[in-house]
Design a protein around this nucleic acid. Structure first.
Length: 312
DNA sequence: TGCAGTGTTGCTTC
DNA sequence: CGAAGCAACACTGC
């Protein structure tokens, strides 16, 4: 689900609702033995320390770096959250049900959104709440994650960017300094790779995943399997232009909910209504005057969707 | 019914 | 080093 526009939408919501609040409690039912998650809340031996460190701290700021969400706390530490495939951060009032050992959402109105009316309360993701932060205004920040790939960990704010989670990341494509030349330099790190795969490589540049890479290449008229070293300067310019346009459009529409992305109020984004390629297999190409058909092909383990005619 | 497919990424293997 | 395959997990849809 979450690529740059979705993570940005969630982070913006956190800035509005939880920055300035204190964390009064934290709960989880995650219990993994996966060594890769040794330093996360999912490790029962690590969780008590995590809890002790964050209790009674204030959330000072919310930041996005690549597809990570960073909550900077008043104790010089930061909570790093990665939503991976099915993670959601949901803000609202939750009630703990002891005999079921789970949290359920309570009917509520936030920002004039009636949760019950909008259907957000009955959305299936509420069945998968695995971490709950209790906040000083009586509300909660819930982490729902069906597939349990997500990651929540605590780091020293000062060492955040040197940590293994962030140190190998490429530049942010929506930064002012990310000009066409920047993209060219980034891409030159992987001259033999297929362009779709390279665009999704977070050590090359960040934030682009499977949906947005398909959409960017559709508009740039480039086949997803085109080898990076064979791209002309004009083609790289086109990719750069459309990357910024499409990612900004994704943010403007509140993210992409083709699958199950929800903002912090539990409501879907609208970018899925503007797909030209992603999951349009077999349908007519929507480019003006193009009579192509959208094809699907697995490229390096991911589904790529592209027009068989105008993407070369 | 069973199995392919799902937004991500990190480890292993070659 | 880089590329590729697969695993982590749980559910949906054909």
């Amino acid at each position: 689900m979450p690529e740059l526009p979705e993570v940005e939408t969630t982070t913006k919501g956190l800035r509005v609702e939880v920055v300035g609040l204190k964390i009064l409690d934290v709960w989880t039912d995650l219990k993994t033995k996966d060594k890769r998650k040794a330093d996360t809340v999912a490790n029962p031996r690590h969780f008590p320390l995590f809890k002790k460190e964050i209790l009674n701290t204030k959330i000072l700021q919310a930041e996005r770096r690549a597809k990570n969400i960073l909550l900077h706390l008043s104790n010089k530490k930061s909570i790093l959250i990665h939503l991976k495939m099915t993670g959601h951060l949901l803000y609202g009032t939750y009630v703990f049900v002891p005999n079921e050992n789970k949290w359920i959402p309570k009917s509520q109105n936030i920002k004039n959104i009636n949760y019950e009316k909008e259907g957000a309360l009955s959305d299936p993701f509420n069945r998968f709440v695995h971490v709950v932060f209790s906040l000083s205004n009586g509300k909660h920040l819930a982490f729902s994650d069906m597939r349990k790939f997500g990651k929540i960990t605590l780091l020293e704010t000062e060492k955040l960017y040197q940590s293994k989670h962030l140190k190998n990341l490429g530049p942010e494509p929506l930064e002012k300094s990310f000009i066409s030349k920047t993209l060219k330099v980034c891409l030159s790190k992987r001259p033999t790779g297929k362009i779709k795969t390279v665009l999704m490589d977070q050590s090359v540049l960040v934030g682009v995943g499977n949906i947005y890479s398909d959409e960017i290449l559709f508009h740039a008229n480039i086949h997803p399997e085109k080898i990076v070293s064979k791209l002309s300067d004009t083609e790289i310019k086109n990719i750069h232009t459309w990357m910024q346009k499409i990612l900004k459009k994704g943010i403007d529409f509140g993210g992409d909910s083709m699958s199950d992305y929800r903002n912090i109020y539990g409501l879907p984004g609208k970018f899925q209504m503007h797909h030209k390629a992603y999951r349009r297999t077999g349908q007519k190409c929507l480019l003006k005057n193009c009579s192509g058909i959208i094809h699907r092909k697995v490229i390096n383990g991911r589904s790529a969707h592209f027009c068989n005619l105008h993407q070369k």
